[in-house]
């Protein structure tokens, strides 16, 4: 298994309801999630706004520390691993962010943005690796000299993908990566991601509230609702015969286009 998540809990201090004296009450965001991500799987994570999708993703990448339960990555328990220990593993799990403007440092050129993680992880031959990553996401090599604001939204998101895959990770988390893009760039970026996953043998977790995208891209789906897993299963089975009431509600609310139609 790439990931084994057991009874994962995560809470934040609820500052809005902090009493004048004493500790703030805890806001439970993840309330005991258990699921597996098999190697090579493309797992879709769906759920309404505020259901805890991003929090789950950030816990899986250990940008947040869980308050309970365990997360193991490829057999290693990373639940409470310290940042020093994590550093050695970080190149194995990478992330693509939702907003490609804020996830690319505006003061760095594209080449520097892609090379930064490579340098941190002690890899050499940086220029070659940057060029290769740009090739893989279909951007001209000359883009290495550009600043993020000189690119379109779709191109920026390709840079975000290039940064993640340049490290040759085993696992990538993509959190709503197309929601800020126009329809045609959405399709292009999703096609690209699908190809890369296949070619590089990546395991992918794809967070989205767009069920039609999940249906095309993912082979497994995890449905989150108020910080709990309400349903999990193979995509086809889940779409054909949803078990949980909440899943039926989600499916009913969203008009699904023909699943055999391909992206332009």
């Amino acid at each position: 298994m790439m990931y084994e998540v057991r009874d994962l809990r995560l809470s934040f201090p609820d500052m809005a309801h902090k009493p004048l004296i004493g500790a703030a009450p805890r806001l439970e965001v993840l309330k005991g999630l258990s699921f597996d991500v098999p190697k090579g799987a493309v797992l879709g994570i769906v759920g309404g706004s505020g259901s805890g999708k991003s929090t789950l993703g950030r816990a899986m990448l250990r940008l947040l520390e869980p308050t309970g339960g365990t997360i193991s990555f490829d057999g290693t328990d990373i639940t409470h691993m310290g940042e020093d220990q994590l550093r050695g593993m970080r190149k194995r799990f990478q992330m693509i962010f939702q907003d490609p403007m804020s996830s690319l440092n505006p003061r760095r050129r594209v080449g520097g943005i892609i090379a930064g993680p490579l340098r941190l992880q002690g890899l050499d031959g940086l220029t070659g690796r940057v060029d290769e990553a740009l090739d893989m996401v279909g951007l001209p090599r000359g883009f290495a000299q550009r600043y993020p604001h000189e690119l379109s939204g779709g191109q920026r998101q390709r840079v975000g993908i290039a940064r993640a895959i340049a490290l040759r990770p085993d696992f990538i988390l993509a959190d709503e990566i197309v929601s800020g893009l126009d329809v045609s760039s959405q399709a292009q970026v999703l096609n690209l991601l699908g190809e890369l996953v296949r070619d590089l043998g990546l395991t992918l977790a794809f967070i989205s509230h767009d069920l039609s995208v999940i249906r095309r891209l993912c082979d497994r789906v995890l449905v989150l609702h108020h910080g709990e897993v309400v349903e999990e299963g193979a995509t086809a089975a889940l779409f054909d015969a949803p078990q949980a009431a909440y899943t039926r509600e989600l499916l009913g609310a969203i008009p699904l286009p023909d699943p055999h139609q391909t992206w332009g």
């Binding site: 940042e83 804020s102 992880q121 940064r163």
Partner: peptide, 26 residues
């Protein structure tokens, strides 16, 4: 609060390093 800071952490940069190389230039 920007994602490029989270991204530096994902890449394994230390907090102090992130402050100097990501936040300070901005």
């Amino acid at each position: 609060a920007m994602d490029y800071v989270a991204s530096a952490q994902v890449a394994g940069r230390t907090r102090f390093g992130t402050m100097l190389t990501e936040i300070l230039p901005n």
